[in-house]
Lab assay of single mutants.
Amino acid sequence: MGTYKLILNGKTLKGETTTEAVDAATAEKVFKQYANDNGVDGEWTYDDATKTFTVTE
């Protein structure tokens, strides 16, 4: 398990959240659902060194 971070750079929603997941693929699924639930759809990037996903609208 590891802690993964999501940085939201949406047009109307900005912020950060974290999740505990077994791997990056699992964290990505959780974060994409979170972003979708909050109406954020954009370009995704992932930094393996910091376990950080970023979505920018």
Rank of each mutant, 00 (worst) to 15 (best):
E16A: 09
G2M: 15
L6H: 00
E57D: 08
G15W: 13
T56N: 12
K5S: 06
A35T: 05
E20K: 10
T19S: 05
T56R: 06
N38S: 08
T54V: 08
Y46M: 02
E16V: 11
A27G: 02
D23L: 03
Y4E: 01
V40M: 08
W44D: 00
Y34P: 00
G42W: 05
A27E: 00
K51E: 03
E43Q: 13
D48T: 11
L13D: 05
K5M: 07
M1W: 14
E20Y: 13
G15H: 11
G10N: 04
Y4T: 01
K51S: 06
I7H: 05
K51G: 06
A35H: 01
A49S: 12
F31G: 00
T26C: 06
M1G: 11
K5E: 03
T54G: 03
M1C: 09
Y46Q: 01
K5R: 15
K29P: 03
L8N: 02
E28R: 09
I7C: 06
D48Q: 12
G39D: 07
K32L: 09
E16K: 07
K32C: 05
W44K: 00
A35Y: 03
G2H: 15
E28D: 04
N36V: 13
T52F: 02
E57R: 04
I7T: 04
F31Q: 00
T17L: 15
K51R: 13
I7Q: 05
N38Q: 13
T19K: 04
M1K: 12
V22Q: 12
N38Y: 14
Q33Y: 05
N36S: 14
Q33T: 08
A25P: 08
K51I: 02
Y46L: 02
K29F: 09
K11S: 12
V40I: 14
A27T: 00
T19D: 03
L8A: 04
A25E: 11
D48G: 10
E16M: 12
T26N: 09
Y34W: 14
K11F: 10
K29G: 07
D47S: 06
K5P: 01
D37Q: 12
G39S: 07
G2W: 15
Q33N: 08
W44G: 00
G39V: 04
Q33R: 12
V30W: 15
Y4M: 01
K11T: 11
G10R: 04
T50S: 10
F53I: 01
T12Y: 14
V30M: 09
E20V: 14
G2L: 14
A49N: 12
K32T: 05
G15A: 11
T45H: 12
T45R: 07
D41S: 13
G42S: 02
T12W: 15
T54Q: 07
T19N: 04
T56L: 07
T26L: 05
T54P: 00
E57Q: 12
D48E: 14
K14E: 05
K11A: 11
Y4V: 01
Q33G: 07
Y4I: 02
T18W: 15
I7V: 13
Q33A: 13
F53D: 00
A21P: 01
T45Q: 10
E43M: 13
K51N: 08
E57V: 06
V55D: 01
T18K: 07
T26F: 07
L8P: 01
N36I: 15
M1Y: 13
D41A: 13
A35D: 00
T18H: 09
V30Q: 10
W44P: 00
G15Q: 13
T19Q: 05
G2I: 15
F53G: 00
D48Y: 09
T18G: 04
V30E: 08
A49I: 11
G10M: 12
L6P: 01
Y4K: 01
G10H: 06
T45P: 00
G15C: 12
Y4L: 01
D47V: 05
E16F: 13
T18D: 05
K51Y: 07
V40E: 03
A24M: 12
T52C: 06
Y34H: 05
N9C: 12
K11I: 14
D37S: 10
A35N: 02
D48A: 14
A35Q: 02
L13R: 10
A24Q: 13
K29L: 14
W44M: 04
T54M: 12
E28S: 07
A25D: 09
T12D: 11
A25F: 09
D23I: 03
K14V: 11
F31Y: 02
T3N: 07
E43W: 13
T45G: 06
K29Y: 08
T12N: 14
E43H: 12
G42H: 02
D41G: 09
T50V: 05
L8K: 01
T54Y: 13
G42A: 02
V22F: 13
V30F: 15
F31R: 00
K5Q: 05
E43T: 14
A25N: 10
A35C: 10
N36Q: 15
G15K: 13
V40Q: 03
A49R: 10
G15D: 09
T26R: 06
E43D: 14
E28Q: 11
N38A: 13
L13F: 15
N36K: 14
T3G: 05
T45A: 11
K11C: 12
Q33I: 08
T3Q: 10
G39A: 07
V55W: 04
I7D: 03
T45L: 09
G10D: 03
V40N: 03
E20P: 06
V55M: 05
T3V: 14
G39F: 06
Y34L: 06
F31C: 02
T12S: 12
G42P: 01
T18A: 07
A35W: 03
E57I: 09
T18V: 10
Y46P: 00
E16D: 06
G2A: 15
W44I: 03
A49C: 07
T26G: 10
T52I: 06
T12E: 09
A24N: 05
L6Q: 00
T26D: 10
K32R: 14
L6M: 04
Y4F: 08
A21M: 03
F53C: 00
T12G: 10
E16P: 04
T3A: 09
E28V: 05
A24V: 12
Q33E: 09
T19F: 13
N36C: 11
K29I: 11
